[in-house]
Nucleic acid binder design. Structure first.
Lengths: 210, 210
DNA sequence: GTCGACAATCTTGTCAACATTTGAGAGACT
DNA sequence: AGTCTCTCAAATGTTGACAAGATTGTCGAC
């Protein structure tokens, strides 16, 4: 693994983890020092992250961490809804019985973590469930697009996880998705996933109004 | 517009136009000479096009034009189906009466060009119709994703356009989409778009079997 | 006091040279 | 003949220096 690739991953993670705030300037020289590499590696990373939608670059004016508006977050979730429904349907078709057991185990863990005080644990289980469904679907294209969309809206997802009562509301929706996948019912799985993400969109819409 | 951006666009177009075949090696030094620029500009372009899925890069081993398998082309079209349905629905909601007139005009032109001998003209009208629907939808996120997916499968789209009788088959589907959008019926628009792209998937599946 | 031109400075864009890695082919040995 | 190793050539990875462009601050005229 070349230094450039490592630096790209590190910078991506640092943006996702919130080490850089939206709007922060990303100066090539400074980053080159921070990550102990040449400017070329940083430039390459910035080009790649720009293509991923995490960074904004203006000619001769430098790069900044992209700021995602509520409107964009809604559109991202709408696009995710369309793609994750496809993924859920494919997962319902392709999941093995081992997969079924794993999904049910995750739901059980979510049930235990749905407590208010365990918001972080629930959030991680949520990410795990969606990721495993992507992998089980075998739909590489949709899986990559969704992973990218998730990253783009990471900042807003974080706020969402902190909402009181949110875990309990989404637990039922996650159960419905897994039940449909385990039953092998592709239409029901797609519908359950659509319902789930539209409830997320409703929350975002309420924020947009406020 | 900096030289790097220009070179990136030129290289992208050259790949899409078929000047480079899938599997062709993209040597940095050679491309730098071809496009009269330094290697840095080429490297930047390759990184960007790799993120777009048009180019494949292996560490220390160089870049090649990405080869899209039939399986991938099917998945790409499935993802497009999910996203373009969303776009069609949004277009049905947001299109103005001017937009309606334009869409109907495009359909009229397609009707005239549906003749076998005008495959190229029909293909361009097809691209125009889908592009205008994306713009009318106002859904930036989905529009960008679809535009990218379309580019990725460009090679297969080209073969599709050459199929005898294909124009006539898709003309009816395009009519249905436009009618639903003009009627402002979002559900019907989404359904019509789904039907359209699933007919494309059927054709690809038949290729996959052969 | 305000507006516009100009200079200083900071940042990115570009290039050329050097280092590293990989793959292939020649040659020797079994 | 086959295979192993060594060497070399080709291509990418990396660095540093220089050029070009943009913003900010300053000075002078009105």
């Amino acid at each position: 693994m070349s230094r450039t690739e490592v630096v790209t991953d590190e910078l991506r993670q640092d943006i996702l983890k919130g080490r850089f705030e939206p709007g922060d300037r990303l100066l090539e020289i400074q980053l080159a020092e921070d990550y102990s590499c040449g400017r070329a590696a940083i430039r390459s990373a910035l080009v790649e992250l720009t293509a991923e939608g995490l960074v904004e670059r203006e000619a001769n004016r430098g790069a900044t961490v992209r700021r995602i508006t509520i409107t964009e977050a809604i559109q991202i979730t709408e696009a995710r809804s369309a793609l994750e429904s496809l993924i859920a349907a494919q997962a319902a078709l392709h999941a093995t019985s081992d997969d079924h057991a794993e999904l049910l185990a995750i739901i059980a863990d979510m049930h235990d973590a749905a407590d208010e005080s365990l918001g972080r644990a629930y959030s991680e289980l949520n990410a795990l469930l969606h990721r495993r469904l992507r992998e089980m679907s075998g739909h590489t294209i949709a899986a990559q697009l969704v992973a990218n969309l998730r990253d783009r809206a990471a900042h807003h997802q974080y706020r969402l996880a902190l909402m009181p009562g949110r875990s309990l509301e989404s637990l039922g929706q996650h159960k419905a998705i897994v039940e449909a996948v385990v039953a092998g019912d592709e239409d029901a799985a797609a519908q359950a996933m659509t319902d789930h993400l539209h409830s997320v969109i409703d929350v975002l819409n309420r924020w947009g109004d406020a």
